[in-house]
Amino acid sequence: METKKTTFDNRLLPYLLLAPQLFITLVFFIWPAAQAVKSSFEREDPFGLSTAFVGLLHYQRLLSDPEYLAALSRTGVFAVSVTVLSMVLGLAFAAAVDRLTRTGKVYTTLLVWPYAVAPVVAGILWWFLFNSTTGLMPFVLEKFGIDWDHDLNGTQAMILIIVAAAWKQISYNFLFFLAGLQSVPQSLMEAAAIDGSGPVKRFFTISLPLISPTTFFLFIINVNYTMFDTFPIIDATTVGGPAQATTTLVYKVYQDGYIGLNLGSSSAQSVLLMMIVMVLTYVQFRFVERRVQY
């Protein structure tokens, strides 16, 4: 990592400038993370008086606990559904706006604001829309013979949080896809048009392959978002239920640790989650280096 060719030669000053950032990072990020790793190998007695080293016990228990494995696969379903739904819609909107020269800006304004809605508010809005007594959606769904009650039906509860989480993320994907599409060289499009390919064919054979780096980047970002930033949606609406049907990995860490006070297991879960974020971040940054050359 480079600096400027000419630099200032103060000895103490750079440390002072870095001190606040490093202090907060060490105290509130790295130290707690280290504590989580440490207590994931320990067991505390019920009174909190002594701790004993138990090795990989918590991990072994977790990985053989059907509930944890169910939460793992549930999180996978949740993350992939939200990612695919919000990316497909974001891309469709971006492709449409990209076609319009003058009115595109207006539509952009009409589509970007959901990003600013807080996850907890987004959850509450959709929860109300699907509310079984007064909501609009159950009323509509009834016409199709669907009996909606996300308080009892786990699949429906999952659909509810998928819709709410994807809704919030559409504008983000839309903006990145739009930027990607607008950077596709116009000359390529014109050449293809002269060769007789229509807009749909051009989209699938030219635009889509050329924006594949953006697509990959967004995939990682969206999986990350769904795993970690959707906590408020779940907490304000389904609270992980019914019967754990919407308990994701992050929600389980919260329930077992903060509510259930099971420190060892919660720490082991934290450590496993950290590993997932590390992999995602690594992939994301490896890819950014490639994108610069692209």
Binding site: I30, W31, A33, A36, F228, F231, V253, Y254, S267, S270
Partner: peptide, 10 residues
């Protein structure tokens, strides 16, 4: 790599 969500308790 360390969002609040993964290190709630500590």
């Amino acid at each position: 790599m360390l969002p609040v969500e993964v290190r709630i308790m500590p």
